[in-house]
Nucleic acid binder design. Structure first.
Length: 676
DNA sequence: TTAGGGTTAG
C-alpha cells in the first residue's frame, strides 16, 4: 500500500489590512452591547477623521437607527449607502428593509426589496421583508411572500419561521399560526429552540394556554425564554396559580430567573392577593439585584396595593427615584380601590405638578377613584381636562367611569347625554354603568334601553341580565323578571361559581360554597357552627319572624366566604388581620356575618372582592352601600308582598344562584329598624 | 468584521 505523498501547503500572500477595519470592529462591539447612540457618534467621528465607510460599516449603523427610531438619520444613511455604491450588497439591503419596517415605512422597505435583482433573491432578504410585514401586523402579506419564496425554490430556514410565527398575536390569527406550526414540523424547525419558543408565545397570545402548556411539556430542551414565555403566558391569561406552580418548578431546575420571570410572578401574586408569596418574591428581587428595575418596582406597588398593604405600596413608591406615569397609576389605583378617593386625587395633582404627563390609563384610574368616592365635580373637571389640557381623546373606558360617576349621583339624564355625545362608539361597559345607575335610582324605562344596547354588545355577560332582573324585581314587575329568566335559560347562561381563598404560609387555600374538600373541613365547620350560635345569641330576632327565617335557613348552603373566614380564624393568632379574597362580589349575607363576627371575636377582616376592599372592624365595614341593599331587600321581604326567595339575592347575583336569607340578616335588619 | 428572530408593567 503506497503512502500518499504529503506536500507542504503553499503560504497565502499576506492581505493588506483595511484601514476601516478597526472602526468596524468597534462598531460591532457597540452594536452587540446595544450602545446604539454611541455607535452613531462613532460614525460621525469616523467621517470627521476622513475614513470612508464600507459595506461592513452600514449594517451596524442602520440597526442603530432602527432601534433608536430615527427615520431621518436612517434616510440620510441610505443616501450615504447609495453615494458609496454599497447599495447592491445583500446584507445592506436586508438591513435597510429591516430598518424601514421598524419605522413602519413598508413602502420604502418594499421598494428596496423589489429592487433586488432576481439572481440575488436571497433568503435573508425575504426573511427581513417577512418580519417587516409581521412587525406591522400585515400577516397575510408575510404569508404571501412565504408562498412566493417556496414557489421560487428558495431555502427556508428557522428565521423565516420565526418571522412568520411572531406575527400571529391575536386569537383570530390562530388558524394561520396552526398552519405555520404544521409547516415548521414538516421542515423540522420545531426542534429549533427559538422556533419552539416562538410557537409557544404564539399560542399564549392567541389565548390557547393549554396547547402552549402541552408544547412546553413536550419540549426536550428549555431555556430561560421558554420558562418566561410560559410564566408570562399564564400570568397574562389570568392563571395565577399556575404561574406560582411553574415558578416553583423552575427554581427546582436551578434555572436563574430574570426580571421578566419575576414580573409574571409578582403580577400573579397581585391577582391572587397572595401577599406572603409576593413578599418572598420581593426578597428574591433584592437578592438577585433587580431592585432598580422599574418594571418590577411598579408591579410590586400594584401587588401590595391589591393585597391590601397600602403602607408597603406607598413606601416602595416613595423610595423610587424616577417615578413614571405607570408608578403613579399603580399607587393612585391602590388608594382608589381602597376607597381613599381624596388621597388618590391628591396624588394625581401631585403627579402633574412634578411634571409627569398623564396618559389615558392614569385618567381611567383617577376617574374611577372619583366615582368610588363620590367626587363628582373633581371627576367632571378631570374628564374635561383630558381633551382640553392634554389633548387626550376620551375613550369608552373613560366615558364608562363618568357615566358611573354621574349615574351614582342620580344625574341619569346627564349620563345619557354624555353617551349620546360620545365621539367613539359606546361599549358594553358604558351601557352597563348606566344600567347599574338605573338599579340604584330605580329607573326601569332607561334600564330597558341600556339593557338593549348592552346585551347586543356583550350577549354572554351574565351580570347585566342579573342587574335587569333585579331592577324588575325592585319595581315588582314580575313579568319582567320572568322574561329575563327565560332569556337566560334560552341562552344557556350560568353564573360562574363563587370562590373565596385565604393565603396561609405561602399556600393558597381555596373554598367553594358547601366545599368539604379542605383537610381541615371538620374543624372549619365546627368553628362555623360556633360562630353562628354566638351570632344568634347576641342577635335574636323577634318571635314573629323566627319561623319564617327557619324555612329559608334550612336550604342554605355554606358560602365560600364563611369557610374562608373560619379557616383564617383557625389558623392565625389573635390580633392578626385576616384577609380573604373573593372572585365575585361578596354576598350580603356573608357581609353581615363577617361584620358581626368581627365584633364577637374582636378581629379585623379584610375582604377583597371583584370590585373593592371591605375592611371589617368591631362590627362595622368600611363600605356603606351594602347596608343600603340589605335594608331595601329586607324591608320588602317583611312587607309581605315579596316575590320569593329569589329577590333576596346576594349583592353579587340573583336568587337561585346566590345568597340565602339567614337569621343573621333578620337580626341585622332589626338593628336597622331600630336605628330608623 | 456584515442580515433576519423568540419573553416585559397599569
Amino acid at each position: 500500500m503506497s503512502i500518499p505523498h504529503l506536500r507542504p501547503t503553499p503560504k497565502l500572500p499576506l492581505k493588506l489590512a483595511n484601514p476601516t477595519t478597526p472602526w468596524n470592529c468597534r462598531l460591532r462591539e457597540l452594536s452587540k452591547q446595544r450602545q446604539y447612540p454611541q455607535a452613531l457618534t462613532l460614525y460621525i467621528h469616523m467621517l470627521r477623521s476622513s475614513f470612508s465607510p464600507n459595506t461592513f460599516t452600514f449594517p451596524f449603523l442602520l440597526k442603530s437607527c432602527a432601534h433608536l427610531l430615527l427615520p431621518l438619520t436612517g434616510s440620510q444613511l441610505h443616501a450615504h449607502v447609495i453615494r458609496t455604491g454599497s447599495q447592491p450588497d445583500p446584507y445592506i439591503r436586508t438591513s435597510l428593509i429591516s430598518m424601514y419596517s421598524k419605522f413602519s415605512l413598508l413602502t420604502n422597505a418594499r421598494k428596496v426589496f423589489d429592487d433586488i435583482p432576481h439572481w440575488q433573491n436571497l433568503t435573508i432578504c425575504y426573511n427581513a421583508m417577512i418580519s417587516g410585514y409581521t412587525f406591522n401586523s400585515e400577516v397575510m402579506e408575510a404569508v404571501a411572500l412565504f408562498r412566493q419564496m417556496r414557489e421560487e425554490g428558495l431555502v427556508v430556514n428557522s428565521v423565516t419561521m420565526l418571522g412568520l410565527v411572531s406575527g400571529c398575536t391575536v386569537p383570530k390569527q390562530l388558524t394561520v399560526g396552526v398552519c405555520l406550526h404544521g409547516c415548521g414540523v414538516k421542515f423540522g424547525f420545531h426542534r429549533d429552540l427559538s422556533v419552539a419558543n416562538c410557537l409557544l408565545t404564539m399560542y399564549v397570545k392567541c389565548g390557547e394556554v393549554e396547547i402552549a402548556r402541552k408544547l412546553f411539556d413536550e419540549m426536550c430542551e428549555r431555556d430561560l425564554i421558554t420558562w418566561n414565555a410560559m410564566i408570562s403566558g399564564y400570568a397574562q391569561n389570568g392563571h395565577a396559580r399556575h404561574v406560582l406552580e411553574l415558578y416553583r418548578q423552575m427554581k427546582l431546575t436551578k434555572m436563574r430567573p430574570d426580571p421578566v420571570t419575576l414580573l409574571g410572578v409578582v403580577s400573579s401574586c397581585a391577582n391572587l392577593g397572595a401577599q406572603s408569596i409576593g413578599r418572598e418574591v420581593e426578597r428574591q428581587i433584592e437578592s438577585f439585584g433587580f431592585s432598580s428595575n422599574t418594571f418590577l418596582t411598579n408591579a410590586l406597588i400594584n401587588m401590595y396595593a391589591r393585597c391590601g398593604n397600602l403602607v408597603r405600596a406607598r413606601a416602595i413608591f416613595d423610595c423610587m427615584t424616577e417615578k413614571s406615569v405607570i408608578s403613579w397609576t399603580a399607587i393612585i389605583g391602590g388608594y382608589g380601590i381602597h376607597g381613599h378617593g381624596e388621597i388618590a386625587v391628591g396624588l394625581f395633582d401631585e403627579m402633574v405638578e412634578s411634571g409627569v404627563r398623564p396618559d389615558k390609563t392614569v385618567f381611567v384610574t383617577v376617574l374611577s377613584a372619583c366615582s368610588h368616592a363620590g367626587l363628582i365635580d373633581k371627576g367632571l373637571a378631570y374628564f374635561d381636562a383630558m381633551e382640553m389640557k392634554y389633548g387626550l381623546q376620551p375613550g369608552p373606558e373613560h366615558c364608562s367611569c363618568l357615566v358611573d360617576l354621574l349615574g351614582r349621583a342620580g344625574r341619569l339624564k346627564e349620563a345619557m347625554g354624555l353617551i349620546k355625545s360620545m365621539k367613539v362608539k359606546p361599549d358594553g361597559a358604558v351601557w352597563g354603568a348606566l344600567l347599574s345607575a338605573c338599579k340604584i335610582h330605580k329607573n326601569v324605562e332607561l334600564a330597558e334601553l341600556a339593557f338593549e344596547h348592552v346585551v347586543e354588545l356583550e350577549p354572554t355577560n351574565i351580570g347585566y341580565y342579573v342587574l335587569l332582573s333585579n331592577i324588575y324585581s325592585d319595581a315588582e314587575n314580575f313579568e319582567g323578571v320572568l322574561k329575563v329568566r327565560v332569556m337566560m335559560r334560552e341562552r344557556k347562561l350560568r353564573k360562574e361559581p363563587g370562590c373565596s381563598y385565604v393565603e396561609y404560609k405561602g399556600k393558597v387555600h381555596l373554598f367553594y360554597s358547601g366545599d368539604r374538600s379542605h383537610p381541615q373541613t371538620e374543624e372549619i365547620y365546627r368553628m362555623l357552627d360556633k360562630l353562628e350560635s354566638l351570632v344568634k345569641e347576641i342577635h335574636q330576632p323577634p318571635q314573629k319572624y323566627q319561623g319564617r327565617s327557619e324555612e329559608v335557613l334550612n336550604s342554605a348552603g355554606v358560602h365560600s366566604e364563611k369557610l374562608a373566614i373560619a379557616f383564617g380564624l383557625l389558623n392565625t393568632k389573635s390580633g392578626t388581620e385576616i384577609t380573604v379574597m373573593k372572585n365575585l362580589r361578596v354576598c350580603v349575607d356573608c357581609h353581615a356575618f363577617i361584620k358581626l363576627v368581627s365584633r364577637i371575636v374582636n378581629r379585623q377582616f379584610v375582604v377583597r372582592d371583584a370590585t373593592r376592599f371591605h375592611h371589617f372592624r368591631d362590627g362595622v365595614c368600611s363600605c356603606k352601600d351594602y347596608c343600603k341593599i340589605l335594608w331595601y331587600e329586607l324591608q320588602r321581604w317583611f312587607s309581605g308582598n315579596n316575590p320569593g326567595i329569589d329577590s333576596l339575592a346576594g349583592a353579587s347575583g340573583i336568587g337561585p344562584f346566590c345568597g340565602i336569607f339567614s337569621q343573621l340578616q333578620l337580626a341585622l335588619v332589626m338593628d336597622v329598624v331600630a336605628a330608623k
